[in-house]
Write a protein that binds this DNA or RNA. Structure first.
Lengths: 225, 225, 225, 225
DNA sequence: AATGAATGAGGTTTCATTCAT
DNA sequence: TATGAATGAAACCTCATTCAT
């Protein structure tokens, strides 16, 4: 009769858990901390999720669903391959900046070494794999990309670059790595200059990645724009 | 102070620890298991390393050193950019097939979220970042690649692809992801057919990645070979 | 105050609780399971009983009342000591076969180690103790049993045997123990042969226990029948 | 090389655990309390026993072994059935007075309702069952007991009485029950009068139980003494 | 008044680290 | 000095009890 945990509280629980897991990973995250963060009791978490791992998986599913949603929105209605890529890249950037914890959850899946990995991978990668392959296959048929391109493998390489882009904006190590490559000092705060510099850098990354991709795919500029 | 452990034993300890960490990650790996695997006592491990984390870091350093060594050997003496790339790709494949645990250690670094990340990244990525940047800058000067290429960012994208290649051969999630992209069933064993099929697939990946890269870099075929 | 629970529901609650407690004991039984079994809410149980222990005690009282009722019915109107014994033995058997949970509840009292034990024992054992003692004292006066019999202690020994008989039919350990003594395999099911074999065995136990008792009590066969 | 837990400490651990389990039962006993009682750490308990249940079983085994040892010593070398019975009864009394916790452990087995019960029963009861059966069969062959006695069932009834005797000295509920039957007030302390009264009562129980048994078994006085 | 979801104390168990031998 | 058994803090999870609806 009475559902004490409102949808808002359930959402809050997931968000709190994603933050905790995103910071510490499955093992180091403590259910009691998640309870505190979300203002709920330990008991109620175990009412909704059988154990810590089940909660982790729910967080994964939630995070991945958001990632996918963003990706799908980004390419929806795009007819040009290059502009679809641009949309995806920009979507990656803004999503990862806003929801770093979700990106980190995604990254944590990749560290798993158990038997469930196959299931996760199928659920998460299956859709994008198909999407990109079809995108490239169609572009090849239409003569917009190099004719010797293997849609299967190019889809993989393309996704490699998008994944790394995600991680570079959401995971500290990859962030640091990007900084090293770009040869810049750590941003100290969030003042106006930093924000502007960051936007500039983001823009530079977009342009260069598009350049890299258009070369890789052998995109005929004229045909696309 | 610590004379009793021969270099061979130290090497053995690191190898055992890398295997254990590579299988289970930092949290799930047990120091006592590492002791058993290496035939040493728990006590002596703590004589050499302050704590589990310190041992983990030593394993990271060791793994990364091997990775780097392999990478450097691969490009040594290569004058052509494309053939350097090919060497690197093939080195990735064979190293990851042989030393999956080392690759996984490398991958574990990226899950770090603490303050030490910067130090790690600097040590590990600094060198390759510089190497690739110089490689591309030189190629641009010599007119062997597209003139509008930004050596800094292209180095990053190139390393993205190599990292993902590593992980695709060493980490279960990424392995599974590659399988999904390539649309193939899980290899059942190590019989002759499997081995041959795997070699074929590896070769296909090398060729397509080189195609992807040469397009991306705008490599002038004639100038390189 | 508590009007809403009909006598039928109260009875059902007790029966459900006795089943749950009989299966699992006080600690392992869950109030929520009892609520489910009885179709009531957890809340209403706590309206009627202060806590799980109080409910357990009510179950004890109820079970013991039934046991006693059965015992009293069995001896009512019996003039011969031996036939009173026989009635009690048969009553034990059939009651325990039908209401094993009640027998187990009774058995659980005996595990108590707290201060309330005296109160329980007084309530439960007081009546039978008096009953048996008077039974034996009367038989001695009438010259139907050995004259050196101590009614007090013989009542205790007699009750010992009846208690053990109860438990042997209601509690798994004692059941198994009886099987070991009787040297028989575990009954596999409830088919006709099993049922017949079981009845035979029950009958054998009755006859031998009567033999044992009549010897112990020094019953003069002629005087009793 | 170094077994820090000496046999004495292991013995102490078992004794402490038996006391704790004997007082509270499996569920209510806390491993941490056992650790405190024995002056050991929680961890070392889990080195020696896989979990609380395993420790409990070890305590059972230990207790039962002692009980059996005492029983076997009691009948060893006794040629007369009646004097063997007397020895057993007196052994029960003194053992239970000294090691009440062991008796309670034994009693706790009988509350179990799980599948392991059969195994326990076999181990514990198997030996005495055979012993008593043979004792009675031999006595019947020799014409020392009634010829219509069924050794199997009489062994069971005899063991019933011994078990109840044990419990009456070791378990509070049964103790209280005996007091009710005997119609005496609770002993207040351990002063001289109490001790003497207790010894008197013990003696009375021995004699009456022997009387009861000799009647039940139809022992020919002349043949035995 | 009845419900049953939420609470949170408390128990079991693990394992990094210590330290007596 | 090297060992590896002992330590004990910390985390998961359960479930008796409460209380908002």
């Amino acid at each position: 009769m009475l559902k004490k945990l409102t949808p808002e509280q359930q959402e809050l629980l997931l968000r709190s858990a994603i933050e905790e897991f995103g910071e510490k990973g499955l093992e180091r995250a403590a259910v009691s901390t998640i309870a505190k963060r979300s203002g709920l009791s330990v008991g109620v978490i175990y009412k909704y999720y059988a154990n810590k791992e089940a909660l982790f998986e729910a967080c994964l599913a939630h995070s991945v669903a958001m990632l996918r949603e963003v990706a799908e929105k980004a390419v929806a209605g795009e007819t040009s391959l290059l502009s679809a890529c641009e949309k995806l890249i920009r979507a990656c950037q803004s999503f990862a900046r806003e929801h770093a914890a979700y990106v980190r959850m995604y990254h944590f899946i990749t560290t798993r070494n158990d038997a469930d990995v196959a299931r996760y991978a199928q659920t998460i990668e299956g859709i994008t794999a198909g999407l990109y392959r079809r995108l490239f296959a169609k572009a090849r048929e239409e003569g917009n990309v190099r004719p010797d391109l293997d849609p299967t493998l190019f889809a993989l390489f393309f996704d490699d670059l998008l994944m790394m882009l995600h991680f570079s904006y959401g995971c500290r190590y990859y962030e640091e790595r990007m900084r090293i490559y770009l040869g810049e000092a750590e941003a100290t705060g969030a003042d106006a200059t930093d924000v502007a510099a960051r936007a500039d850098q983001d823009e530079r990354i977009v342009r260069q990645l598009l350049l890299f991709l258009s070369g890789a795919l052998g995109i005929r500029e004229g045909a696309n724009r």
